[in-house]
C-alpha cells in the first residue's frame, strides 16, 4: 500500500492521470481490494492484516504480476497474447535445463529472456505483417512454446543452481518483516513499465494505436513497430516471469503455469484496462493482481472454502468488470456523438 501512494504522488502527475479519465474501474478495483483486505483483517487478525501479508502477495504472485504487466502493453495496443503462460513455462524450463547442463545462471536467464523476446517478435511480426488475428497467432505461439518445453524434457527438471536459491533468501526489513530480492525485481519491473507507458514516446504510441490504429498511422506514428514491440515486451515479461517461476518452484516443467494467460488477462481487465484497447494503466494491473492474490490468500486462510472458489471469484470479477466496461463504453460513445 505504501508503494502505491508513493507512486501516486510522485509518478502520476495530475496531467497523465486525469487526462485519460478511464480511472473509474481502477478506483472500483482499489475499493474492492481495500474492502477484501479489511474483511480479511477483521476475520483473521492477527494473521491477515499485517504488512507481511502484503509482501507475501508480491512473493507469491510476482510472476503473475510481471506477466500481467506485459499483457497490459499488448491489450492497451488492441491485441491479446495467449502465449504468455506457455512462455512462462518455457522460461522456467530453459533455466532448469541450461543450468542443469552447467551453464552459468546469468547466461541461462539471458537466453530464456532472449527466447521470450524472439517469440514475441515473431508473433508481432506475423500479426502486423500478415494481418493474422492476434488471438490465433499467439495461440500458435502458445502451442509452440509448450511443445518446445516438452521437446526439452517430458519430465520436470529440478533447478539446483545456487543463484536461484540466493534470489529468494529472506531479507529482514524494519517492522518485523522480510522481503526477498525477487520482490524488489518485480517492483522494479512495474516501475519500468510505468515509466515506459507514461513517459516515453513508445508508451504514448501504444495508447494511440489502441485508440485508433488508422488514426495513429495517419498521424505519422510507427504503427508496425509499436505493435510488434508490444508483443516483444510481453514475451520478455513472460520470460522473466518464467525465471521467477523457476525461482519460486525451483524446477522447470512443461506443465508449469497452465492457464496463466487467463489469470493475466483477468488481472489486466480487473485492473481497469479495456479489452478493446486504448484505456488502462499498469498500476491498475498491479491492483488487479493484488486483488486476485488477496482473494486467493483469503480463501487459503478460510480453509474450508477451497481453491476452486478462486477461479469462480475471478470469473465473477471478470464478468462484473466486462459489463462495467461495456456500460462505460456505451456511455462514452453516446457522449461523443
Amino acid at each position: 500500500m505504501t508503494a502505491l501512494t508513493f507512486m501516486g504522488k510522485r509518478g502520476m502527475t495530475a496531467f497523465t492521470f486525469v487526462s485519460r479519465r478511464g480511472y473509474l474501474p481502477v478506483l472500483v478495483t482499489l475499493g474492492l481490494l481495500v474492502a477484501v483486505f479489511v474483511v480479511g483483517s477483521i476475520l483473521y487478525y492477527p494473521d491477515f492484516g499485517t504488512g507481511q501479508v502484503v509482501v507475501n502477495l508480491f512473493i507469491d504472485n510476482g510472476f503473475l504480476l510481471v506477466t500481467a504487466v506485459g499483457m497490459t502493453f499488448v491489450i492497451l495496443s488492441g491485441g491479446i497474447d495467449l502465449s504468455v503462460g506457455a512462455v512462462v513455462a518455457l522460461g522456467a524450463m530453459l533455466c532448469a535445463w541450461l543450468t542443469g547442463m552447467g551453464w552459468p545462471a546469468w547466461l541461462a536467464i539471458v537466453t530464456a529472456i532472449a527466447a521470450g523476446a524472439l517469440l514475441g517478435f515473431i508473433q508481432g511480426y506475423v500479426i502486423h505483417e500478415f494481418e493474422i488475428q492476434p488471438f490465433i497467432a499467439t495461440l500458435a505461439g502458445m502451442f509452440l512454446a509448450r511443445g518446445l518445453c516438452f521437446v526439452i524434457s517430458i519430465e520436470q527438471i529440478p533447478i539446483k543452481d545456487p543463484f536461484f536459491d540466493w534470489v529468494q533468501t529472506p531479507i529482514a526489513v524494519p517492522g518485523d518483516m522480510f522481503i526477498k530480492p525477487t520482490v524488489i525485481l518485480v517492483l522494479v519491473i512495474v516501475a519500468i513499465a510505468y515509466w515506459m507507458l507514461h513517459y516515453t514516446r513508445f508508451g504514448r504510441n501504444v495508447y494511440a494505436v489502441g485508440g485508433s490504429a488508422q488514426s495513429a498511422l495517419l498521424m505519422g506514428l510507427p504503427l508496425g513497430r509499436t505493435r510488434i514491440l508490444t508483443y516483444v515486451v510481453s514475451g520478455v515479461c513472460s520470460a522473466i516471469a518464467g525465471v521467477l517461476f523457476g525461482v519460486y518452484t525451483l524446477s522447470g516443467s512443461g506443465l508449469h503455469a497452465v492457464g496463466m494467460e487467463l489469470d493475466a488477462i483477468a488481472a489486466v481487465v480487473i485492473g481497469g484496462t479495456l479489452l478493446t484497447g486504448g484505456y488502462g494503466y499498469v498500476l491498475g494491473t498491479l491492483l488487479g493482481v493484488m486483488l486476485l492474490g488477496t482473494i486467493k490468500t483469503l480463501l487459503n486462510f478460510q480453509g474450508t472454502l477451497s481453491s476452486w472458489w478462486t477461479r469462480i471469484a475471478i470469473g465473477v470479477l471478470l464478468f462484473v468488470f466486462i459489463v462495467l466496461q461495456r456500460a462505460l463504453g456505451t456511455r462514452r460513445r453516446s457522449a461523443g456523438v
Binding site: 487526462s19 485519460r20 495508447y207 485508440g211 485508433s212 462514452r332
Partner: peptide, 12 residues
C-alpha cells in the same frame, strides 16, 4: 470521420 485517437488527451 475524425482521424484522431479518442482515448488520448486533446493535447496529446
Amino acid at each position: 470521420e475524425v482521424n484522431l485517437c479518442p482515448n488520448l488527451s486533446v493535447a496529446e
